[in-house]
Amino acid sequence: MDNVQIIRIQILAVIGSVLLIFFILELIRRRRLREEFSILWLAMGVVFLVLSLFRGLLDKFSYFIGIGYPPAALFLILIMGLMLILIHFSTAISELKETQKKLVQEIGLLKAGGAHSPAAPALRAYGLPGGPKAG
């Protein structure tokens, strides 16, 4: 690989990383992405930007952790980053499911006019059958 080729891929990598960062920032600006979800993406963009600006860094890193072939270290970083983001998604979805379940339960109870309902004391006063009793 001659020098021209290396510089070409370096320029492409820098452009790619900068585009990713700007794309994420733009999504936040348009309120299509919440900040909490953007941080991991931005961190990945910054890591790639730094790695493409300072070429020696990837070699040093792969030597440091004992990988003989530097591009493999790049894949490792990429896969770890994506896994972090996906686990973050899983926890976020779990939270959403929990919230949704509670809302569905609450709506059901409110519609049924349980003890939650503003009408509950009146129902009890009229002794309507099936109405909840005072605790």
């Binding site: 339960q105 003890a115 909840p132």
Partner: peptide
Amino acid sequence: GVRVIDLPENIGIGGAVQTGFLYAREGG
């Protein structure tokens, strides 16, 4: 005399039974 709680979405047997517990708790 049967009180019916209509959940607007299907949340699974556990969530449904828990709604019953919530109702029973509120009703004392």
